[in-house]
Design a protein around this nucleic acid. Structure first.
Lengths: 144, 144
DNA sequence: CCCATGTCAGTATTACTGACATTG
DNA sequence: CCAATGTCAGTAGTACTGACATGG
């Protein structure tokens, strides 16, 4: 019959973990003055300096319109700057953005560390690999 | 310094996996006429018949006001029924709701199965355990 | 010509906070 | 009295779809 058993469903466990992580991040990041979405974008821009808006959107799994709007806010906050015009616009952190991200990143790293407290190195690696594996597998058949 | 490296961050991998799963579920469930949130609530009500709205809210990690609103929609669709009054209201699936959930559940099970395609049983178990472990760990210190 | 991109606009979904009555 | 619950309202944050100009 292949139904979903809520207690052994990896999908449900995924949701639990994500919700808990998101709540923890939300709480800490709010103190720093960033939403989770803003933080994620800053992190990705820092990892790939000069990225385009469209690429950023793909990186955080939303439409380019959504990131476009988000970036507007980040620009007003002077956390990012856009270099280039027309179709060739590249995103970079401002010095202020880099500082803010550094602070946020440390806070998030602390949360992740606490979250992984009960897992040894080999389990962490296996978890990371498994998560990346299932994300890749699902992405293979994605319609959008 | 303990910063976040996007490529080895379990938090980011978690987000990737969750986004991919959510997108896949969203697509399939839409055909069945349910949102992901609605599906999740139905699944939880099925697993714990007679659950209260407040418990449901905790189970899906949102406010009781959010589930209250969601339940209104499910009632209009005749998928659930509420038994009891005042503070003692208990949620149950209607026959229609049970049928719809069964269909949705099979679709979601298929997605999960595809997603886990590359993982053997021992890895699946380890993944499940690790996810539940980190969710529990984070929940320990949650403010809300 | 085609496709990807940036961008403007409108809309919808969802969850949140605040507030209040009820009840064990 | 207190804490939890159900419930009504209002608000906000986020993402989506549609549409269009631009440029490689």
């Amino acid at each position: 019959m292949s139904q979903v058993d809520i207690d052994t469903s990896i999908g449900y466990a995924l949701k639990r973990a994500t919700s808990a992580l998101r709540a923890a991040m939300d709480e800490r990041l709010r103190e720093i003055g960033l939403t989770v979405s803003q933080y994620s974008s800053l992190e990705l821009i820092a990892a790939r300096p000069g990225v385009s808006n469209a690429d950023l959107a793909r990186g955080v799994f939303v439409s380019r319109q959504a990131t476009h709007q988000l970036l507007g806010g980040l620009r007003e906050l002077n956390l990012i700057e856009v270099i280039g015009e027309g179709r060739d616009q590249r995103l970079h952190l401002t010095p202020t953005g880099a500082r803010r991200l550094k602070e946020a990143s440390a806070a998030v790293a602390a949360i992740e560390e606490r979250m992984l407290d009960g897992l040894d190195q080999s389990r962490r690696k296996m978890l990371l690999d498994s998560l990346n594996d299932i994300a890749s597998t699902l992405a293979t058949h994605t319609t959008s």
